[in-house]
Design a protein around this nucleic acid. Structure first.
Length: 757
DNA sequence: CTTGGCGTGATTTTT
DNA sequence: TCACGCCAAG
């Protein structure tokens, strides 16, 4: 039997977790301890041994990647398992979406079953339109996203007082109404609304009981749960629902995004959960694990099974460019020794640090992939075309309608205000038609009173004139008539012609063929989706849009593919959950790793982040710091994190990598290369453009043999004050005595001091 | 409609 | 520190 075979592969700790039958169980799963395997075997245990149907299990993850992995592995183990049986397996958001679509009475909140999921960008755009329409006074519009997020979180009427004395809370109220009117939910709304309706059901205020009553709730990466998710959990879990949650408190690196601080403690006390742990790490070599132990927080156990392996290598590089150059040859060397590119990864603290590696690797012809957040939004045609589709599929979606019409490049109307009025008029007309059919009683009476309707009614001069279709843009008519056209049998293949897209894509523009190609690829993606789901066009597009909002569209978004044989470049954050045989962590300077942080909490998180980074390595780990970190707000020399690793685990190659003369000669060579390619110059030595390129030269010749950091008074250079010497230093400040200017105190965080060796 | 004096935040990012 | 937005003064 499948389950027995899987179970036999486990160690004693994993077995204990799988066969634990307590009502609530928390598994403290250390890095690389086979967390996902335990989770999947647990599901199989419940299914085969406890005869619990998959349909009665809710399995919650944070990322689609994790959810896919779980589903795929289950289906692979037993082919008869269907996606339908696994309907409650998914991300928190995905499961909430399914609940709202299939089980919960969204109508009671003022939504219909075909509601759509809004992307965060759409949310901001909707807010901007409301500001325009209602002439709201909102300060710091450039930070609107953040401000909205904060203001939306406040529900207490008394606390709704704007810090900047503007209309932000008027806006949040309008947003709430507008989202219902447009039949759209944000990511947050998915959780909130599902939670609200589950809570109401739990209190017995509503029916529809039997369809959703899970026997088990299983949570992956539980340490990343935020308050809302814990709340949702409490509404899902009934007396006889069991809870099994797996996570690692040492890998909390997203608390700045709101994950609840001590989820383990909270859950343990709330549900009297039994606590188990998985201490055995199968991934990393002995010395890597030994180093990692110094970054554990709460005395958790971490045991390895591999040999101690090679020592951790610490390197010092003069600057990022020199490092990129070194890494290129190091990677070539490894590759010649038979290490596949895909087993090599370079981690850094900030996104901006990847550029230099990209350039050098491109020139050295080393295949690589960078993990960057690229979305469909970065392709302007598709951004526009998706708005067209959104409005066509949902005429209430005025936000998308207006943006489709007023797009700078592909739109047909100039004034957002006019388009807004036009779309509103049609939405109102639609609603009037609906209530005529259903009788006025039935129309959305329960909706919270929103003033938007009244306001626009007043400003409306002659609404009747707006119904004259001939006077209106063709694109608008095409979008408005889309659902009728679908009913009359419009096919996806005809969409290009239906919308006369080639006309809007401006045949004269330079990007024309590229644009047409992108749209065609999107349409074929939708077409595949429609076939797979067996859905008709209009309904299918709605499903596709929701799917795309939650899953993204991988073919347009350059996500890292671990199967591709290429070197992976990513931030430490992005490295979570991955593993490589060779890992290089770069820029371990004070101010960068750990990043200059405010409080103790942030500092702890930086430590966990570094822990996550080093524990990605299976066999070989190399850590490096810069002498001249230049562009990043960082100090020269190694950070505290490096000295936390005991010397016996480390081969310190920082002093061995050539003599000072070698370095100097090397820099001359590098400099020649730089002068040969202007692009590099721009970000590596931006100041050289104005200063004639002599400064670097002086700096290099200033390097004296045998002089190490800290022993001799540190000389520094400042763009404004010239050359000086550090005369005082504490945790936050540096005092510098300049030759010409005198004494000046700087904040370490911000001073753009150039440290001379 | 420009100018300067303040205040504020700066990084990591899934859904 | 530096960039940027806000706002009041000109």
């Amino acid at each position: 039997m499948r389950y027995e075979a899987e179970f036999a592969k486990l160690n004693e700790y994993q077995r204990a977790a799988v066969e634990d039958d307590s009502n609530a169980c928390l598994v403290n799963a250390n890095v690389g301890s086979g967390k996902t395997t335990v989770l999947i075997t647990k599901v199989m245990y419940l299914h085969y041994k406890k005869q619990i149907p998959y349909e009665n299990m809710v399995v919650l993850t944070f990322t689609n990647k994790a959810a896919d992995e779980i589903r795929e592995r289950l289906i692979k183990l037993e082919e008869t398992v269907t996606e339908e049986q696994l309907r409650w397996f998914g991300t928190f958001h995905g499961v909430c979406l399914s609940l709202l679509k299939k089980v919960l009475p969204v109508e009671s909140l003022g939504y219909t079953k075909d509601f759509l999921v809004m992307t965060p960008e759409e949310e901001v755009l909707m807010a901007e339109q409301l500001i325009l329409e209602h002439q709201l006074k909102i300060k710091y519009k450039n930070r609107l996203k953040k401000r909205l997020e904060q203001a939306m979180a406040i529900v207490d009427e008394e606390k709704k007082i704007s810090k900047y004395q503007d209309d932000i809370f008027l806006l949040t109220d309008l947003m709430r109404g507008e989202k219902k009117k447009q039949n759209k939910m944000t990511y947050q709304d998915l959780l909130d609304n599902a939670g609200f309706l589950l809570a109401r059901r739990k209190k017995g205020e509503s029916q529809a009981e039997d369809i959703f009553s899970p026997d088990w709730i299983i949570i992956d990466e539980v340490q990343d749960c935020d308050g809302r998710q814990l709340e949702l959990l409490s509404y899902m879990k009934e007396e006889n629902t069991s809870l099994f949650a797996v996570g690692d408190p040492n890998q909390v690196i997203y608390s700045w995004r709101g994950s609840a601080l001590n989820v383990f403690y909270t859950l343990k006390s709330k549900y009297q959960a039994r606590e188990l742990s998985l201490p055995i790490n199968y991934r990393s070599s002995g010395s890597i694990l030994e180093a990692a132990r110094f970054f554990l927080q709460n005395g958790s156990r971490l045991e390895g099974v591999k040999d101690s392996g090679s020592k951790i290598v610490v390197k010092n590089h003069y600057n990022p460019f020199q490092e990129a150059d070194y890494l290129a040859s190091k990677i070539k060397e490894l590759h010649e020794q038979g290490v596949p590119y895909r087993e090599i990864a370079i981690f850094y603290r900030l996104q901006g640090q990847s550029g230099i590696f990209e350039d050098v690797f491109t020139r050295e012809e080393i295949p690589f992939e960078v993990s960057l957040k690229k979305s469909i939004q970065d392709i302007p045609v598709l951004n526009w075309f998706l708005r067209v589709l959104r409005y066509a599929a949902n005429r209430e979606d005025i936000t998308s309608g207006v943006l489709a019409l007023c797009d700078r490049e592909y739109g047909v109307m100039a004034k957002e205000k006019d388009a807004l009025r036009l779309c509103r008029a049609y939405a109102r007309k639609d609603r009037a038609n609906v209530s005529e059919k259903q009788g006025p009683e039935n129309s959305k009476q329960q909706m919270p009173k929103d003033e938007s309707e009244n306001v626009s009614e007043k400003t409306e001069q002659s609404p009747k004139s707006l119904y004259l279709e001939e006077a209106e843009p063709k694109l608008l008519i095409q979008m408005l008539h889309f659902s009728e056209a679908c009913e009359q049998g419009l096919k996806i293949e005809q969409l290009m012609e239906y919308f006369e897209l080639k006309q809007y894509l401006a045949p004269t523009s330079a990007t024309f063929s590229e644009d047409v190609d992108a749209v065609e690829r999107l349409l074929s993606l939708i077409s595949d989706y429609l076939i797979e789901e067996g859905q008709p066009l209009c309904e299918g597009i709605r499903l596709f849009l929701n799917h795309a909002a939650l899953y993204g569209m991988s073919i347009f978004e350059n996500k890292i593919d671990t199967k591709q044989d290429s070197v992976k470049l990513m931030t430490l954050h992005a490295s979570k959950g991955l593993e490589f045989s060779h890992v290089f962590i770069t820029g371990i300077n004070y101010g960068l790793i750990p990043l200059q942080s405010k409080g103790m909490d942030a500092e702890e998180e930086e430590r966990r982040l570094f822990f996550v980074g080093i524990t990605r390595a299976k066999d070989y780990l190399e850590l490096s710091y810069y002498t001249s970190p230049q562009q990043y707000r960082a100090m020269p020399g190694p950070s505290r994190f490096l000295s936390m690793i005991p010397g016996k685990l480390v081969t310190d190659e920082s002093k061995q990598s050539g003599t000072v003369m070698d370095t100097s000669a090397r820099l001359q060579e590098i400099k020649r290369q730089i002068l040969a390619s202007r692009t590099e110059m721009q970000y590596l030595f931006p100041e050289e453009e104005t200063q004639g390129g002599h400064r670097k030269e002086t700096e290099v010749s200033n390097t004296k043999e045998g002089e190490t950091l800290g022993q001799v008074a540190q000389r520094v250079s400042h763009a404004k004050y010239g050359i000086g010497v550090i005369i005082g230093e504490d945790d936050d400040n540096v005092t510098v005595k300049f030759e010409d200017y005198g004494e000046k105190e700087f904040l370490k965080l911000f001073s753009e001091l150039e440290y001379l060796e």
